[in-house]
Design a protein around this nucleic acid. Structure first.
Lengths: 195, 195
DNA sequence: TTTTCTTGATTGACGAGTCAATAAAAAACA
DNA sequence: TGTTTTTTATTGACTCGTCAATCAAGAAAA
């Protein structure tokens, strides 16, 4: 059976299966066997390609982060105004690709993983910083010096909405989440008439 | 040795130890033995009083929720204005009692627990709904019909800040978190001069 | 025949939950 | 009062299952 160049295919399958499995179980408490089985191979092969469970998780995390980043970059590329840039970032955060039940569950568990894995913590920090930086730049023309504070608030809102979504009661729609945040942004942009 | 009426003492010790252990490990992946040892007893006794690991977790969660609720209630009791009521809720969320490293880690893991335990999910929902209701009532005199939306945003901000705090980089100060949210509230209260 | 894939079987560790047995207080009793 | 019995508290030792990680061996390309 062995076909050549299987490594990248197997790795991708395992990463995808890991996210699906974490999403379905809601926990990092999934066995390598479960992941491997879902990916259509033996657990031994999973160990062969990744070395260990944690490294599968980290790869899944990098993948999730990469998908998100790519979507943000793509959306930013089409934005022509500062406000559109903010909208691009926010909209990407709640796109069908990223706001799915299993992906949200994976995010939640990555935060837990970051409690014990330095590498996971590093990855999450890269994400956090980049999000703030991107939002901050986009906001500068709109709110001036308040940009960092507004960016921090938007980031916290995104994380908070993800957390609520993870509970899965009445799944907040992507549009609802988007509006919730952009209404706040509008408020910040419109300020300046009272002070 | 056996002294009578140990049950409540043991249960309290186990709950406290569970939170500390979860906080230190950052995971629900703690053994009953670890918790029991920290609480100064054998693992058999922990099983005797609680029946199983999950029930220890749920008790720890109820305790965390109860401490938080008590603090909110206390702070609300001293508030005389609507704005003071909002401040009371927000300030309680970031008090020394509730914003501690281990307690925040426990919260994070309770969200994970809620993925698999119906009871945990129920408890978190009670918390979410009560928080929104309390904030909504306090906000009504300040922002009128926008109260539910503003309450939802505040709730998301609180959760998001907790999530960031769980990463433990440069621990956001309680005051910083408080200001971050109350600045937003002020913005909502001041609105109405542009539309 | 060398390299790349692949797995079944195994190992070794760990941990949840059970149980029988001990110890001390309290209650019942003589 | 002194003695027995019952209740409450407590644990060491054990069972049973699970799972990460390893390895030797097989199968198919190159």
């Amino acid at each position: 059976m062995p076909k050549l160049g299987m490594e990248p295919i197997r790795r991708a399958a395992l990463v995808k299966a890991a996210i699906a499995e974490i999403g379905e179980t809601g926990t990092l408490d999934v066995t390598v066997s479960q992941i491997a089985k879902r990916a259509g191979m033996s657990s031994a092969l999973a160990h062969h390609y990744f070395g260990g469970k944690e490294q599968i998780f980290l790869a899944a995390m990098r993948h999730t982060l990469a998908v998100y980043s790519a979507e943000v970059r793509g959306a930013l590329g089409m934005a022509t105004s500062p406000l559109a840039r903010v909208e691009a970032v926010v909209k990407s955060s709640f796109s069908h690709m990223n706001f799915r039940q299993d992906v949200v569950a994976a995010w939640l568990n990555f935060y837990v993983l970051a409690q014990t894995s330095e590498e996971a913590k590093r990855l999450l920090n890269v994400y956090q910083l980049r999000l703030r930086r991107t939002l901050g730049h986009a906001l500068r023309p709109l709110v001036g010096d308040r940009a960092p504070a507004v960016a921090a608030r938007i980031a916290a809102l995104i994380d908070g909405i993800y957390l609520e979504q993870s509970l899965g009661y009445q799944p907040a729609s992507s549009e609802g989440a988007f509006d919730l945040i952009m209404d706040y942004v509008a408020l910040e942009v419109d300020r300046g008439c009272s002070a």
